[in-house]
Structures are given as structure tokens and as C-alpha cells.
């Protein structure tokens, strides 16, 4: 069963076509990547999925709810983290999680916060203000916030963009574990091809606001006649076409 169905999304900002007829699905427990060069329309697509930006045309259905009409019920079962978002600077880690546990209407907020603190090893940071944390620590808190409501769909926009390789690897490991153990569906954008190869069951390459190629990392590499996803990315970014249809 699909947790997310995106159909023919289009968005134009003035004369710029940001997203042009994007359609895809994310099944339960599936990890789907949106890849593409800067300005390809990935973040705009994610923001339309989450209801932050209204599409000019097309529909987004999340857990069977039309996002245009039933946003709150859909969002109660999803969550989001992005490298460019922060959390309230002066709040302590424990306070932030407590606030979001209430914003997501959790029944036992204190117990769930304790679980998240344990899962993401935030115990020593619980009384620290968010602004005083390192980038890696902040990302862990953002992920704890994003996992608080045990979302059936986790949307991640370049989740490891600001992290050093070690911190990024730990976060990636955690996300893979989440996908495997909890069967959580994820929709991810990333510029880190190894991350995508490791995490995603299926990848959509986006260029000029359109999906230009779809498949698993292996299928895409095969279709473009190259060794890995990074080489596929370079081909797509430079306007290359697959050597066979995927």
C-alpha cells in the first residue's frame, strides 16, 4: 500500500518552472530518493508534499488524505527534517522534544521523549540549549523531533548536508536501522550518492523540474552504462540520456 501518492505536480514561480508534472509513489516501508542538481525542483517537490507550498496543479495524497483538504490528519502521521531548519535556539533539548510531543498530540509525551532521548543518545544533552550544540548534535535532535510521532512517512531534505563524514555515517546508520526495523517509509533528497545507494530502494532523478530517470541504484547505473550513482548524477546533470530505458 502506498503511503504517498504524488500525481502530476506542477509549480511555477513567475516565469520559472520549478516542478513540471512530477508523479511518484512511496510505498509502506519503502525508502525513495529524489536526486538532482541544485535548482532541479527537489525541495519544492518536498515542500508541496508537506503542504508548505501549494501546487499550481496536481495532487498529493498522504495516507489516503488529500493534502489540499485534510492536511492536519495527514501530517499527524508524517514528519520532516532538513539540514536548513533549526529548532528554537534558547530551548533545551528536553524542552524541544516535549513541545513537539504536544504539537503532534502524542498520548504519552514524556515516555516517548524518554524513548527518543535513549534512541539518539541525547541523555547528556537533554539540559543543553539547542544553540550550544554542535552540528552533529543538532542533527540528532532534529531527527529525534522527526521520529517523535513514530511517523509512517519520514521526509528528509539533505539530512546529513552539514555533517562531517563520521557524524553523517552515524546518522545514516540510524536511518537505515529505522527503515529496516520499523518499516518506516522515507522520502529523501541528498547530494551524497553513497548515502542514497546505501539507503534508497528506489531513486528518481529530477532535472529541470521533471523526473528523467527512475530505478534502483543498480538499475540506473546499468541504464546509463556507468559504474555507480555518482556517474549517473553527472550524466543527468550534464543533460545525458540513458543508454537504455529503465
Amino acid at each position: 500500500m502506498d503511503v504517498l501518492t504524488v500525481t502530476a505536480l506542477c509549480k511555477r514561480f513567475g516565469s520559472v518552472v520549478a516542478v513540471d508534472g512530477v508523479s511518484f509513489t512511496v510505498g509502506a516501508g519503502e525508502v525513495v530518493g529524489l536526486l538532482g542538481p541544485n535548482g532541479a525542483g527537489k525541495t519544492t517537490t518536498l515542500h508541496m508534499v508537506l503542504g508548505l507550498t501549494r501546487p499550481d496543479s496536481g495532487t498529493v495524497e498522504m495516507f489516503g488524505h488529500d493534502m489540499a483538504r485534510d492536511r492536519s490528519r495527514a501530517l499527524a502521521r508524517a514528519n520532516f527534517a532538513a539540514s536548513y531548519l533549526h529548532l528554537p535556539a534558547v530551548l533545551r533539548v528536553g524542552e524541544i522534544l516535549d513541545v513537539y510531543a504536544h504539537l503532534y498530540g502524542l498520548r504519552r509525551p514524556a515516555a516517548r521523549v524518554a524513548e527518543m532521548v535513549e534512541m539518539l543518545d541525547l541523555g547528556p544533552l537533554r539540559r543543553q540549549q539547542f544553540s550550544r550544540l554542535s552540528s552533529g548534535q543538532q542533527t540528532r535532535v532534529l531527527l529525534a523531533k522527526a521520529l517523535l510521532n513514530d511517523p509512517g512517512l519520514l521526509v528528509l531534505d539533505e539530512p546529513t548536508a552539514n555533517l562531517d563524514p563520521d557524524a553523517a555515517d552515524r546518522i545514516r546508520g540510524l536511518l537505515v536501522e529505522q527503515a529496516v526495523t520499523s518499516g518506516r517509509a522515507m522520502l529523501i533528497t541528498s547530494h551524497n550518492m553513497r548515502e542514497v545507494e546505501r539507503m534508497c530502494d528506489r531513486v528518481h532523478f529530477v532535472s529541470g523540474g521533471r523526473i528523467v530517470a527512475t530505478g534502483s541504484a543498480v538499475e540506473l547505473a546499468g541504464a546509463y552504462g556507468v559504474d555507480d550513482l555518482e556517474a549517473v548524477f553527472l550524466r543527468v546533470a550534464r543533460g545525458g540520456a540513458p543508454s537504455s530505458t529503465t
Partner: peptide, 17 residues
């Protein structure tokens, strides 16, 4: 304060109306 903290989008992607 939510704007300055770059936290506003976190609030708007929550089910909070």
C-alpha cells in the same frame, strides 16, 4: 522568535493548525 530560529517550518509541517 520562530522565524529567527528557523523553526517556523517545523511548526507548519506539524498537525498544528
Amino acid at each position: 522568535h520562530d522565524v529567527w530560529s528557523r523553526n517556523l517550518l517545523n511548526v507548519f509541517v506539524s498537525p498544528t493548525s
